[in-house]
Design a protein around this nucleic acid. Structure first.
Lengths: 221, 221
DNA sequence: TGTACATCAGTGAACGCGCGTTCACTGATGTAC
DNA sequence: TGTACATCAGTGAACGCGCGTTCACTGATGTAC
């Protein structure tokens, strides 16, 4: 029932100047999310206000209240969309383990870091904005869907280990997630708080995962 | 030359009510750091203002300007002290690899997570407050000192691997740091943004490190 | 096809509030002699 | 030991500002008939 009423909205988004639009924005909820993303990318998750978002979207400061109770609800919405996108990106990279699990798993790790670098604003909202995932059921579900991709990948991977030595897939998924998140948040970001690194983050993660998998008894070829 | 003039300052710290003190606070710089720690612990690194810190310390809102240019400088100071404490804690846990490197390394990992849990305010200021470590030379140095402990430990560990297969100690240090940081920031914190975990974070890290070291060719015993 | 009406989404003015920052000041401390 | 003085550290009042939030309102849209 709802579709983008006016494509010029999207084109005009970047500057915040809404140009000529009617009395109704037509797509304000989405525009506020885009505003939040732009402002988080610019100044961090704590660096913008509800009024900023309204200004960026070119509406009066009272308008956002038609769509979000407060700033936290807006950020939670951004985080939810981020997890949904993240889940898609990860699922596509994993591709059900084709052509073979080890190759696909490497792709998955790279996709993780790609996402953190390409979408620092989403990543911030998802992991650093202090949003409690349990507060909003939809957010929680989106977060779990994204983790489920990692977990399914781990399940397929541990099948490469003989049954008697096979580790719990959950543990493997948590290990890889932690390492990927650690690398992403320490080294894989575009902002000033990033630490310098003598190699690309992707290579650091790939090496860590290869060594870890060897420790599990999984080797390439 | 400077020492704590009045011990009641410390005792009175928790409530912010300074009780009876003279016109001069005597130790305001330190009190502001403690205020920042308390407020970060309570509401996160973005959840307090310069004026809050002054109020907490029981001084007028103009007083902090005698010691810090602005809020960022206060937070950078907190982060620096955090790294100094962190370096001490890690060095003590590592204890130069006694009685043997593997045992000491496990202790080091646990100390890392202990610190993140016991000092969430320091940990936030150090890693999540968006402070650029390069902005302040003292901060940068403290941060490097802390990392150096991890790196020295890694150097001793890789000696357990035959020379021809020996990995770079730097890489090992970065892998372990990333994993520890990932676990700490995803699961090892006291606040609401923490994810649930089916096991203690320490055990998750220990397992990850053991598997990783086995992948390097290092096994216990 | 046209008209009346209900509903929706954004307006703009207003409010109280707390923040960051400045300023001339003053109480307390330390030091020279 | 005492006095004069320089320096330091905190005061309190003031300011302009932007924020969050509310309110009665109004333009636009959709629908019943």
């Amino acid at each position: 029932m709802r579709w983008t009423k006016d494509d010029s909205d999207k084109a005009a988004g970047a500057g915040g100047g809404a140009g000529s639009r009617g009395y109704h924005h037509g797509n304000l909820k989405e525009a506020l999310v885009r505003a939040a993303l732009a402002l988080i990318a610019e100044k961090g998750p704590a660096g913008f206000t509800f009024a900023d978002a309204a200004r960026w979207a070119g509406v009066s400061p009272a308008a956002p209240y038609r769509h979000f109770r407060d700033r936290d609800e807006l950020i939670a919405n951004v985080a939810r969309l981020g997890f949904e996108l993240f889940a898609q990106v990860l699922a596509k990279a994993w591709d059900e383990g084709r052509p073979e699990p080890l190759v696909a798993f490497d792709r998955l790790g790279r996709a993780y870091l790609d996402f953190a670098r390409a979408q620092p604003a989403y990543y911030s909202a998802m992991f650093e904005a202090g949003v409690a995932p349990d507060a909003d059921p939809a957010l929680r579900e989106a977060s779990e869907t994204a983790f489920a991709v990692l977990r399914q990948a781990a399940e397929k991977l541990v099948l490469l280990v003989p049954a008697k030595d096979r580790p719990p897939a959950m543990m493997v998924a948590l290990h890889v997630w932690s390492t990927a998140h650690g690398i992403a948040s320490l080294f894989g970001r575009g902002d000033a708080a990033r630490r310098a690194l003598p190699m690309p983050p992707e290579d650091l993660l790939e090496a860590a995962v290869l060594i870890y998998l060897r420790g599990l008894g999984i080797t390439a070829g």
